[in-house]
Design a protein around this nucleic acid. Structure first.
Lengths: 103, 103
DNA sequence: TTGCTTGTTCGAAAATGATCGAACAAGCCG
DNA sequence: CGGCTTGTTCGATCATTTTCGAACAAGCAA
């Protein structure tokens, strides 16, 4: 039973999602989730302080990109691929392309 | 002879472009350029102050999304479709989709 | 229970970004 | 030339973001 708010796809806002993706740290998280599947917050912090990461996960959740399941102590994060694809077709694919990476 | 700086596609940065697109005013400009072709700054301000629009155009130029030709007094703006498509395939299409509009 | 782990929330500080008036530059028209 | 038009640049202000330590909550393990 997650204590977090996860908007339904109809409520996704493009500008909000683009803003969520426009931060290097968050984009890295999204890419890692896409490449490696569900992961805990700890597995995704790049040695950054937990409070900082907690903030980024919240932005990702609010935008609709990520779902956090608060089961157990360690929270699991999942990229909401299908939902995002349904609402903004092609967006995630474009952002996740290997060619788009690196600078 | 444009006095503006327009980065070449190799220099486009994804996070910078996503940030440029994440502002409602700028997204509206990009959509108008996509739908109606080249336009002057005046045609694209939504009754907003010129200094404000000038700022947004600069962000759009720096990201690589827009090219401003400074010929004549009135500057012409063009969406750099091909360049953006070559560097970040699918990104513009996703953002310009009608379904993605409206909230 | 006590302690360790994982993560959130709060609050503050620093950085970044958006907005807009005023002054300025340059082309164009009469 | 003088004035109008189109936009840029500068500076200030205000709002939003980012970052991070400290305190807190809850599960889990010994």
């Amino acid at each position: 039973m997650s204590r977090f708010h996860h908007p339904p796809p109809e409520a996704f806002e493009l500008t909000r999602m683009l803003h969520a993706l426009s931060d290097p740290v968050r984009l890295e998280v999204v890419r890692s989730l896409a490449a490696n599947g569900e992961q805990t917050c700890a597995a995704l912090d790049g040695d950054r302080p937990k409070s900082t990461m907690s903030h980024h996960f919240r932005v990702l959740r609010d935008s609709g990109l990520v779902e956090t399941r608060g089961e157990r102590t360690a929270h699991m994060n999942r990229l909401r691929r299908e939902e995002v694809e349904a609402r903004f077709p092609g967006l995630l694919d474009a952002v996740l392309r290997p060619e788009s990476v690196g600078r």
